[in-house]
């Protein structure tokens, strides 16, 4: 049983009330001119929305719909491969730079310490960020769909 008579108005207009609710609502309607005015307003609203429909798209757009999505899924795979390749190359480059840095006796110690501190700081921040994202990922249902 719906408590609020005014809220029942929506159900009455749409024929969604049970017999008991409908009878109770009609009894209230007979005694309440404001409620009757609201009912008329809702009916007028339905008259307008009843003749409206959403626009459609031309057939050729629908014919090409799947192809467009398919191309995007392929591009997604391409991006994954590209990112993977870039990460591998970046890691290798960093390894080479760090190796040169520590082997080369010409480079002052304070530069080596500075670069090491910066590198360790970056790794800590990266790990922390990844951990936070994983934490949120494991606790959110349908996480991919929420932006």
């Amino acid at each position: 049983m719906v408590k609020n008579r005014r809220e029942m108005l929506a159900g009455y207009v749409d024929g969604e009330l049970s017999d008991e609710e409908r009878q109770a609502f009609e009894a209230a309607l007979a005694q309440d001119p404001e409620l009757r005015a609201e009912l008329e307003e809702f009916k007028r609203l339905q008259e307008v929305t009843g003749v409206m429909q959403y626009a459609d798209l031309p057939d050729e757009v629908w014919d090409n719909y799947w192809q467009s999505i398919y191309r995007k899924t392929e591009r997604g795979f391409g991006w994954i491969l590209l990112s993977l390749g870039a990460i591998i190359l970046l890691c290798f480059g960093l390894y080479e730079v760090m190796r040169e840095l520590y082997v080369d006796s010409q480079i002052p110690l304070w530069v080596k310490i500075g670069v090491t501190a910066g590198g360790v700081g970056f790794i800590i921040l990266l790990v922390s960020y990844i951990r936070e994202r994983l934490f949120a990922y494991n606790r959110t249902r349908y996480k991919e769909v929420i932006k």
Binding site: V48, T49, G50, V51, M52, Q53, Y54, A55
Partner: peptide, 24 residues
């Protein structure tokens, strides 16, 4: 304005006030 249109297949469409449609 073309996202929501009057459905001309409905008999009521002929008498619907176009201003009301725009207002909606």
């Amino acid at each position: 304005v073309s996202w929501l249109l009057v459905d001309n297949r409905t008999p009521e469409a002929a008498v619907i006030n176009k201003e009301k449609v725009a207002d909606l």
